[in-house]
Simulated scan of single mutants.
Amino acid sequence: MQKRMQFLKYEMISSKCNSVTTCALMLLSIFSVIGGHSEFNGISVQTVHRGKSVNISCKYKPSSDTKCFTVELKTNNKLCSLMKSNNSLIHHSCKEHIRFIPKTEEMSFEVSNLQINDTGTYICVVTRTIPPPSELLGEERTFVQVIAHPNVSVSHVRTSDGCHTILCLSEGFYPSAVEQVWMRNGGFQNVSLTYNINKTNPDESFTLHSYLNVSDCTNYSCWVNHSSLSQPMILHLPPPDCYENTGIKMWMTLVTCVLLILAILIITVVCERLRRARSQSVPPVGMSVTPTPVLYTHLHSETLYSTLGDHHPVPCSPVGSPLISTINTE
């Protein structure tokens, strides 16, 4: 693993080489500690994560006759300059992300919010201006290497030809040297089965897509190693229930939901109709109902036999009728 990390850092530095001198300086810092400081032949090398800050110091040898001196921090262009006279700051001009930190025998600058394109050699120069002639009091060079760790994600995707594919995506890393390998059940997958796409982003960072066609429901993981990481990252991809049954289960779930909604609607309609029917058959509270009169017309056709006398039949009629009054008078 240590050899692998050293090889990655070698590729990282090689990818930033713009000149023979710069490459030689960077390659000599291969074995420096990531995120720390190292020094070679008086040249300081600092490795910083993107978005962080770095302090660049500049030592110098003050002389007793120095009345006024200037301090400059520059790369390809001037970043910060100031003039001091008798420990008083006369002129000060710096970029927004650079802050001057005054000290007695050392000048220090804080460069904040470093981005990938801030990688390069920073030169700090201290020059005596008064009394003339000008004299160089100190000069230091610091190489700043800005790195960015990858943002890794894994997911299931479906290609245009219908194949089931898994994707491991590493975004925004710098430098470009990265190891990204698929793992199957804890073992490394054959690299030849992986389809990779590399892309350079506008901020000079890199993005790597790794695709792997699969036909089973096994556990897969994406293993990523980069010089900005203290240890490799492993992201696990949970397997689906089964690639072949995913579509069928989706349709079954949809049909079940539709049938359940229809059943609820039917039950609601039936209950509403029963409620309306009951409300129509029961009279409102407080309303009296007059019973239908019972007619006794059938009594006229019946004959009542008296238990007295010779048992002559007596016509039966309602009480108080004219017929009964006649019989009584007789």
Score class of each variant (00 low, 15 high):
308 L>N: 14
49 H>Q: 13
119 T>V: 05
223 W>T: 04
195 Y>S: 06
129 T>D: 10
118 D>E: 11
150 P>T: 04
234 I>Y: 08
26 M>K: 02
167 L>I: 09
9 K>N: 11
221 S>N: 11
306 S>A: 13
137 L>K: 00
149 H>Q: 11
88 S>G: 11
279 S>E: 12
54 V>E: 09
156 H>Q: 09
220 Y>Q: 05
94 C>I: 03
11 E>H: 07
134 S>G: 00
257 C>G: 10
211 Y>M: 01
152 V>I: 15
112 S>Q: 13
254 L>V: 04
11 E>F: 12
148 A>T: 04
42 G>H: 08
108 S>Y: 01
179 E>G: 06
156 H>D: 14
280 Q>F: 06
55 N>P: 01
223 W>Q: 07
245 N>L: 15
255 V>L: 14
60 Y>V: 01
324 I>Y: 06
77 N>M: 11
174 Y>E: 07
50 R>N: 02
9 K>V: 03
240 P>M: 07
53 S>H: 12
101 I>G: 03
128 R>L: 09
321 S>E: 08
313 P>N: 09
98 I>E: 01
220 Y>R: 03
149 H>M: 04
278 R>G: 06
217 C>K: 04
203 D>T: 14
82 L>M: 11
184 R>W: 00
145 Q>N: 12
89 L>Y: 02
283 P>V: 02
326 T>C: 07
48 V>A: 07
261 I>D: 02
35 G>E: 12
227 S>Q: 09
16 K>R: 15
298 H>P: 03
125 V>A: 04
90 I>P: 00
306 S>M: 13
300 H>K: 12
308 L>I: 06
291 P>W: 00
214 V>G: 02
84 K>N: 10
83 M>S: 11
25 L>T: 00
188 F>M: 04
311 H>S: 14
142 T>I: 07
69 F>G: 01
286 G>R: 01
232 P>V: 06
327 I>H: 13
184 R>E: 12
173 F>G: 02
10 Y>H: 09
87 N>Q: 12
41 N>A: 11
186 G>H: 08
194 T>M: 02
174 Y>V: 02
8 L>H: 10
109 F>T: 05
288 S>P: 00
214 V>F: 00
213 N>Q: 11
310 D>C: 08
326 T>I: 03
182 W>C: 03
96 E>G: 08
147 I>H: 05
295 L>E: 14
268 T>Q: 05
200 T>L: 10
22 T>P: 00
282 V>S: 12
66 T>N: 12
14 S>F: 06
308 L>T: 07
175 P>C: 03
156 H>Y: 13
93 S>Y: 10
219 N>M: 05
115 Q>N: 15
75 T>V: 01
225 N>D: 14
60 Y>G: 03
135 E>Y: 10
288 S>T: 01
213 N>E: 13
70 T>M: 14
293 P>W: 01
11 E>M: 05
274 L>K: 07
102 P>W: 05
68 C>Y: 13
51 G>P: 15
128 R>D: 05
1 M>Y: 09
111 V>E: 04
23 C>M: 13
226 H>F: 02
155 S>I: 09
40 F>Q: 08
62 P>Y: 12
297 T>Q: 10
